[in-house]
Amino acid sequence: MWRQHTYKLLFSTLLLCGGLLMATNAGELKQSQAFDWIDVLGEGTTFLVACLWLGLIISSRPAGRVTEWLYYGSLLLMFSYFLDLLDEFIRYPDALRLMSWLESLPAPVGMLVLTIGLVGWHREQRAIDRQLRGRELFLRDHELIDPLTQLYGAEYLYAVLQREITLHRSMQKPLSLLLLDVDNFADFNRQYGIAAGDNYLVQLSELLSNQLRYSDVVCRYNGDRFVALLPNTAQLQANIIAQHLQQQFSLLTNQNQQPQLTLISLEVEQLSAKDALQQALNTLTSARKHGPLTLQTD
C-alpha cells in the first residue's frame, strides 16, 4: 500500500520540515532548565500516536476519496500537535501571533476533515458488507477466514448456525443446510497435483457463493467439504437450490478431470449446531454408500 502514497508522504515530510524551519526562524531556543518535561511527555505521546494513525491509514487503505479525507484530516492534526510539541523547546516573541494560530487552528479543521472521512468510511463499509453477503452473517472475525477460499471456516459455521437455529425456532421458520463433498479429493490431488486441487477448491467456492442467494452463507467446513446455511428455507426450496447447483457444477471447467461431487440438502430439526452438522454428515455418508446417485434429499 505504501507505494500508492509516495507523494502524500513526501508532502507531509515537507510540511513538517516547513513547520520546523518557521518555528526556528521565528523564535529562539529555550534554556534546558526551562523545559517542562511533563508537558513534553504528554504532547510528544500525542504527536507520536497521530503519526502512528497516519502510518496505519497509509498501510491499510488503497488510494481513493475516503482515504484522502482520512489522511489529510490526520495530517492536519499531526501538524498541529507537532507545533504544539515544538513550542516546549522554542520561545516565540510575544508580538508574533502567527505561530500560535498555526498551532491551534489546524487541529479543529483536521478533526472536521477526519469526521468527513469517517462518514465516508462508514458508507464504504456498508457497501462492502453488501458485497460480502453470502459469505458472512451477523458475525465478523477476520481470523476465522480460510486463506485459500476466503470463506469462513468450521468455527464460524458453528457459531452462526447455533444462533440461526435459536432464532428460527423462536420464529417458527424453517432452516436448511446444504452439504457439498468432493469425492476422493485426495485422489484428485494425487493425480493432478495439490496446486490443481487448491485451484479447484477456489473455483468451487466462488461458484457456490455466486450461485446462492444473498441471505445464504457458505463456509468451508474442512478440507473438501462446504456447508451452506439457507435461512428461512424449507426442504422443498432447498432441494430446488441443490438441483440448480448441481447443474452449475457440470459447467465448471475441465469436464474430463473433474472429481465427483456429492451434494445433500436437509432441513435442520436438531436443537444444537453440533447435532445438526452430525446429522448432515451422516446423511452424506449414507448418500455416498448408495453409489453414483449424487443428489440426495432427506
Binding site: 476465522l144 486463506p147 485459500l148 471456516g153
Partner: peptide, 8 residues
Amino acid sequence: LNSPELPF
C-alpha cells in the same frame, strides 16, 4: 495464515 490444514 490461519490455515490449520497446512501440515496435512
